[in-house]
Design a protein around this nucleic acid. Structure first.
Length: 103
DNA sequence: GGACTGACACTGG
DNA sequence: ACCAGTGCCAGTC
């Protein structure tokens, strides 16, 4: 797998149970605060579902990819709720509450 | 090797 | 605060 890819997968896989992270944050942790797109794209191009908990990765709004991944946003929300991630009435994950904060 | 694409993020109005 | 436009990086064709 490509270097950047591997790094993204490893970092996403590093997200603790019941936590969610944003693409920008992952990109920043990789050293590229501008690589948010690349991060999300990496998960899109290679959705290693089962190895990488891409369902714990959300955009800066706390929303999911859209509905073509994981089999549906509903699936996404259920998984996160099962892990203990709280959701807002807007349908977005409560980043203020369950955003992954390394350090 | 060049150009286009893409699960985002930020700035400006 | 919200909508629209631009920038970014890496991969694929």
């Amino acid at each position: 797998m490509k270097g950047y890819f591997s790094r993204v997968y490893q970092l996403v896989s590093s997200i603790p149970y019941g936590k969610v992270a944003t693409y920008g944050q992952i990109a920043a942790l990789l050293g590229d605060p501008r690589g948010a797109r690349t991060v999300g794209w990496a998960l899109h191009s290679n959705p290693d579902a089962g190895r990488v908990p891409c369902h714990r990765v959300v955009n800066r709004k706390g929303e999911l990819s859209g509905g073509f991944a994981f089999g549906g946003v509903e699936r996404q929300r259920s998984l996160l709720e099962e892990e203990g991630v709280h959701f807002l009435p807007d349908g977005r994950a409560d980043l203020e509450r369950d955003l992954w904060r390394p350090g």
